[in-house]
């Protein structure tokens, strides 16, 4: 594999992990615009534990991910009291606050960034992304995924059915934060360097776009969205400086035509019906 291709696939792997971190709360109707903050917790957590305590990657990554998940859990309860634009703003602010804390934390290098000695190669990163996809596919086959959609569709009815709407929402938010932390941990370990400036609002917004573009109705949407957003700009390289303009125009047109995203439940149903008709 060429260095260029490996580099692109590593970025794709990180984007896929991040997309699923946003997808989990979004499947329950919650927009998390602060996902970069949780990635930062994972990244700095893994960096600190491997550097300062000499932990192995195998120990540091789960602990760093769990730390991000725990922060998601603790913050989730008050933050998820808000809805709609207020929730978006609250999570946006949360992401900024977390990044600002690391920016000012001298023990992890402050604004100068933090260099790691441990290293995760590209194949480790690929395995991590494949692992996240498999876990998400597994979850999508469970009642938990069903309840995410139920809570998003009609929280009042879900509540009357006995589902803890708040419990499901907080669980989705915290799990998403954990996945973000997992991705952030490998990001730090792969690039051997973290700086708080990387975990900015653009990173959060782009990740949300992956999911919106791919579609939040099915578990395949985030994967499709992350692949498109990572690979399409590379394919448009021939356009040189125009490529981002072409790309942006395409996104606007696409979202106007198909606001529910690329992959939807009715799309799957259409395929299923066609295959049933083909083999009566």
């Amino acid at each position: 594999m060429s260095g260029y291709l490996t580099g692109v696939l590593v970025v794709l792997a990180f984007n896929v992990i991040a997309a699923y971190a946003v997808y989990l709360p979004m499947a329950a109707g919650q927009l998390n615009l602060g996902i970069a903050g949780f990635m930062a917790i994972g990244a700095y957590g893994a960096a600190f534990l491997t550097n300062e305590y000499g932990w192995s990657m195998l120990a540091a990554v789960p602990v760093a991910s769990a730390a991000a998940g725990l922060v998601g859990l603790v913050i989730g309860f008050p933050v998820l009291r808000t809805h709609g634009i207020y929730l978006a703003l609250a999570t946006f602010a949360l992401g900024q606050v977390i990044a600002a804390v690391f920016l000012n934390l001298e023990v992890v290098g402050g604004a100068a960034g933090y260099t790691l000695s441990a290293y995760a190669g590209p194949y480790v990163v690929f395995a991590a992304a494949i692992g996240v996809v498999l876990v998400m596919l597994y979850l999508s086959r469970t009642r938990f995924a069903l309840y995410l959609t139920a809570v998003k569709s009609d929280p009042t009815v879900a509540d009357l059915m006995g589902i803890s709407v708040r419990g499901v929402q907080v669980a989705a938010f915290a799990l998403g934060a954990m996945v973000a932390g997992f991705g952030g941990a490998f990001y730090a370990l792969h690039y051997n360097f973290v700086e708080a400036q990387h975990f900015n609002v653009l990173l959060s917004v782009f990740t949300v776009l992956y999911v919106l573009f791919g579609g939040a109705q099915t578990v395949w949407g985030p994967l499709a969205g992350a692949m498109f957003f990572t690979l399409a700009p590379e394919a448009l390289r021939f356009g040189e400086q125009w490529r981002y303009a072409i790309f942006a125009l395409f996104i606007i047109l696409f979202m106007a035509i198909r606001p529910q995203g690329l992959i939807t439940t009715s799309l799957f149903q259409g395929f299923r019906r066609r295959s049933n008709e083909a083999s009566p």
Binding site: Y138, R141, T142, R143, F144
Partner: peptide, 9 residues
Amino acid sequence: TDLLTPYRL
């Protein structure tokens, strides 16, 4: 257990 069993499989 019911929550996390992959019933769809």
